[in-house]
């Protein structure tokens, strides 16, 4: 579900702004580090889990407004280079602020340890993450499908010029889409921190998978991102049970196999 969450945010930004956001992995890492600092500041995991992704969304808002927006006129390549440069700046920023050596963040005490599910012994915190990420994906989906602003965002993905001609401030739409994408990356990072810990390179590891999810689902297709995230996650889990050495390679093998049959991705039309 975390892959779906990451893929959904990246797909939203790719769809609306029409740029592959290379800083998406770095925003994921920033979410984890914000959670760590917020826990130390407020002393409460749950409050920190609310605050950390909001902080990343605000950061996303600033990035779009101050960094990407002035480059709309300059063209696509400049925006792409900007997000790539931004990913390096954020990565180095993490090292400057929190140091090069990673650290661990324990789950809240109520979610420590595991549950015997009969067929498998599974950590409580991972079960919580599954449910939480599922709810977030569902909430985002409902927002995009059932609200007026969600409809505008979807329309923005389909045809920005038309949306603009209808009198909608397309720049505000871009900012909102980037902030929402950053929020999803941030909360994915925050939820991941107690599982994988924190390290400056954690975003790089996740960025590749997020791009696989977006490509597999179809560029800018939100439903495709969710489905691809689930397919990748399940494929990785199943292969790891029987052939652990191939658990990373399978992500790319699944992508290659599906793209050979459907070059536009599972739900892509272009």
């Amino acid at each position: 579900m975390l892959y779906a969450l990451m893929g959904l945010g990246l797909s939203l930004i790719t769809g609306v702004l029409n740029i592959p956001n290379f800083a998406h992995g770095a925003l994921f890492a920033v979410g984890a580090y914000f959670l760590f600092s917020a826990i130390h500041a407020v002393g409460n995991f749950w409050l920190a889990l609310v605050l950390a992704p909001v902080g990343v969304a605000l950061l996303g808002l600033v990035i779009e407004y101050a960094g990407i927006r002035p480059l709309y006129a300059a063209g696509h390549d400049y925006q792409l280079l900007f997000t790539f440069g931004l990913s390096l700046i954020l990565g180095e920023g993490i090292i400057v602020v929190w140091g090069p050596i990673g650290f661990s963040q324990l789950p809240p005490s109520i979610l420590r340890g595991g549950l015997d599910l009969g067929f498998i012994f599974y950590p409580k915190y991972r079960l919580f993450v599954m449910v939480m990420a599922g709810l977030l994906v569902l909430a985002t989906w409902l927002f995009l499908e059932k609200t007026r602003y969600g409809a505008i965002m979807r329309a923005g993905i389909e045809n920005k010029e038309m949306v603009s001609l209808l009198g909608i401030d397309v720049h505000r739409l871009f900012t909102a889409a980037f902030a929402l994408g950053a929020y999803l990356a941030g909360i994915a990072g925050a939820l991941t921190a107690p599982i994988r810990g924190l390290s400056p390179s954690m975003g790089v590891d996740m960025l590749g998978i997020a791009f696989v999810v977006v490509a597999l689902g179809g560029l800018g297709n939100l439903l495709g991102a969710i489905a691809a995230g689930l397919i990748i996650g399940v494929a990785q889990a199943v292969v790891a049970l029987y052939w652990t050495e191939a658990s990373v390679a399978v992500i790319f093998a699944v992508m290659a196999a599906i793209l050979l049959v459907r070059p536009q991705g599972l739900f892509g039309i272009r």
Binding site: P123, R126, R196, M202, Q236, A240, T244, E245, S247, V248
Partner: peptide, 17 residues
């Protein structure tokens, strides 16, 4: 005796095994 690639970040399946 399970082998994992260098740079592995998802160990849940290894631990389950």
């Amino acid at each position: 005796a399970d082998r994992h690639p260098l740079g592995e970040r998802e160990f849940s399946n290894y631990v389950t095994k």
